[in-house]
Amino acid sequence: MAKIVVITSGKGGVGKTTSSAAISMGLALRGHKTVVIDFDIGLRNLDIIMNCERRVVFDFVNVIQQEASLNQALIKDKRCDNLYILPASQTRDKDALTKEGVKKVLDDLAEQFDYIVCDSPAGIEQGAQMALYYADEAIVVTNPEVSSVRDSDRILGILQSKSFRAENNQPPVREHLLITRFDPERVARGDMLDVPDIEEILAIPLLGIIPESQAVLNASNKGMPVVLDEKSDAGQAYLDTVARFLGEEKPHRFLEAQRKGFLKRVFGG
């Protein structure tokens, strides 16, 4: 039985696409056949993060509108045989996504894949609602910052009232909190919300904490999901996140401010 996982947040720029790329690659590396779908119609970006932007021929909307077959539109990742990408359309309006059309594609994908990862667009409009509608699990990406936490709570409200599961009185979508761009030093100074603060406000189980890291920008510069940079803090944090998602117990890491040298402590910086 394929699992549908939506990566969502409400707010833009918090790391949904980065997380979608990292988590889907992580699942694939663990041996699960995984497809990641870009739901951001008109603002396609998963392709460039996954380094397949020049291999896009057909897209998600072409498949929904039966202008191409699913296998024509799926792009196989060159680094991992278990991973496929279904890119968003760059030209169409996001109203091209309908519940019936999305359902058909997801049903077809479910026959071939273990995990279907849906990279949601920002906002709470049609595109975002379609990305989460059929989800079994939701990973809510949140930055330690007031607007992101507030928007995450709104998205949780939509998951609880407007998803297929909610509308059909099925068991609710399983919710997971993924905190990204976490900066332990700023938390230590009292300038940034801490993990327990966010957990207390959103009241959903914590899946992972990704530290603010240069590795994330480096990875997206190269079109490489950050989990492939195994030495990096962010890469390891995402791999831990995937392991927890698959049911393993892993302690949270990268939560401590790094010890500064003597000069830095005296003079700041």
Binding site: V149, R150, G190, D191, M192, I201
Partner: peptide, 15 residues
């Protein structure tokens, strides 16, 4: 008070 503390209190109320 530290700004993170202010943020938490404001969030609790609005959420």
């Amino acid at each position: 008070p530290k700004s993170a503390h202010v943020a938490k209190e404001r969030l609790k109320v609005i959420v």
